[in-house]
């Protein structure tokens, strides 16, 4: 696949902004993600006509309407399947899939499994606000145990799923996390997802100010973010806060938090982030406050170069058509056929 030339003159954020009025609630984290994406696309040098946003149903899935690109607001949970068809029909398209915790992990969980394992060359942004917003506040598959909502007035007893761990379990080859309000890191992470040849899965912690306000404050609020977030960088030791770090507890596969400079711990004892290590990524995906920081950035990037599904399919198409498109008339006349002559007494021929 030859990438298209970047547009000339270069596009701006405004070029990617549609004329439709944005209809999310005031203060919704979705605004920040939309702004980040609209700022990022010109920097990627992509063309509007080649870019398609595909979404399912839910607050986040209104996203395509606000992008001045091609867009398809599909049905609940099915965006990965629609996007698969798009890529099969035209692998050159640059497809962004926008979904949420309900759309992607509940009603559409099955499709998310399969798009991830097939490694289609597209990007998935999963807006995780741990709540059903558009249907007015029911608990979602990422809501924490005990969550009180209109459908769980006594508190949810529904054990939540960790999206990044789910994606890794599905065989995803690029798994990352970002925070809605941290535009700089979010943009960098989305760019990395775009650069990846295969499915780039990015979970974004997104605040729903109406039905689940502050769900992530314990690690995203300005005063605690530095202490509670681990910003992953490939090849760098896992440090966070003023002097904290992560290491493997000696003799185990468990991670523990240590303080550099205490009890003889030095930076050399800390885990060094290796993006290509899936086992390490699993450990990172399951770290939760208050014991652990939340790992953000690129948790995993496979270096195995699995051919994306649609590319493999088109390679096979090419192979099948090596001698040109088939002749349907000839196809239907293959095998056992016979001719009947106009004269009914003539012999049939095989």
């Amino acid at each position: 696949m030859t990438p298209l030339d970047p547009p000339n003159p270069p596009l701006t954020r405004k070029d990617f902004t549609s004329d439709q009025e944005v209809r999310w609630c005031p203060g919704c984290g979705d605004y920040a993600i939309l702004a980040a994406v609209q700022r990022m696309l010109p920097e990627l040098g992509v063309r509007r006509e080649n870019t398609v946003f595909v979404s399912g149903i839910g607050c986040s899935s209104r996203f395509p309407y606000y992008m001045n690109t091609y867009g398809f607001h599909t049905i609940h949970g099915r965006a990965p399947a629609v996007a698969t068809g798009l890529k099969l029909a035209n692998p050159q398209l640059d497809v962004w899939l926008v979904t949420g915790d309900g759309d992607g992990l509940s009603i559409g969980g099955n499709h998310l499994i399969h798009v991830l394992r097939r490694n289609l060359n597209l990007q998935i942004i999963l807006f995780n606000n741990r709540i059903y917003g558009l249907t007015k506040g029911q608990y979602s598959p990422t809501s924490l145990l005990g969550k009180r909502s209109p459908s769980s007035p006594m508190g949810s007893v529904d054990n939540p799923i960790a999206p990044a761990a789910f994606a890794l379990g599905c065989g995803a080859r690029f798994v990352a996390r970002g925070v809605d309000t941290d535009a700089k890191n979010l943009i960098n992470t989305l760019k990395r997802a775009h650069e990846f040849q295969g499915t780039g899965f990015v979970e974004v912690f997104q605040n729903c100010p109406v039905f689940n306000d502050g769900a992530f404050d314990h690690f995203t609020a300005k005063d605690v973010a530095a202490q509670q977030q681990l910003h992953l960088e490939h090849g760098k030791p896992m440090r966070f806060g003023d002097d904290k770090g992560l290491r493997l507890r000696p003799g185990s596969l468990d991670i523990e938090v240590v303080t550099v400079g205490e009890n003889g711990v030095t930076e050399a004892d800390l885990l060094v982030h290796d993006e290509t290590n899936r086992s390490q990524a699993f450990l990172l995906a399951n770290l939760d406050p208050p014991t652990f920081p939340v790992a953000v950035g690129v948790l995993f990037r496979s270096d195995e170069n699995l051919v994306p599904f649609e590319v493999g399919m088109h390679e096979q198409n090419k192979q099948a058509r090596a001698r040109g498109l088939g002749d349907i008339n000839a196809l239907m006349r293959k095998g056992h056929t016979w001719k009947v002559d106009a004269d009914p007494s003539a012999d049939p021929a095989g």
Binding site: T74, R78, A81, T84, G85, H114, R321, G326
Partner: peptide
């Protein structure tokens, strides 16, 4: 597939029709 078709065995019936719809959009 030499005759101008790409065939996709989807994960379920819904994905099968949705992929077809995505292809038509494309």
């Amino acid at each position: 597939r030499a005759y101008g078709i790409t065939t996709f065995q989807a994960e379920d019936e819904i994905a099968a029709v949705c992929a077809a719809i995505g292809a038509s959009y494309a």
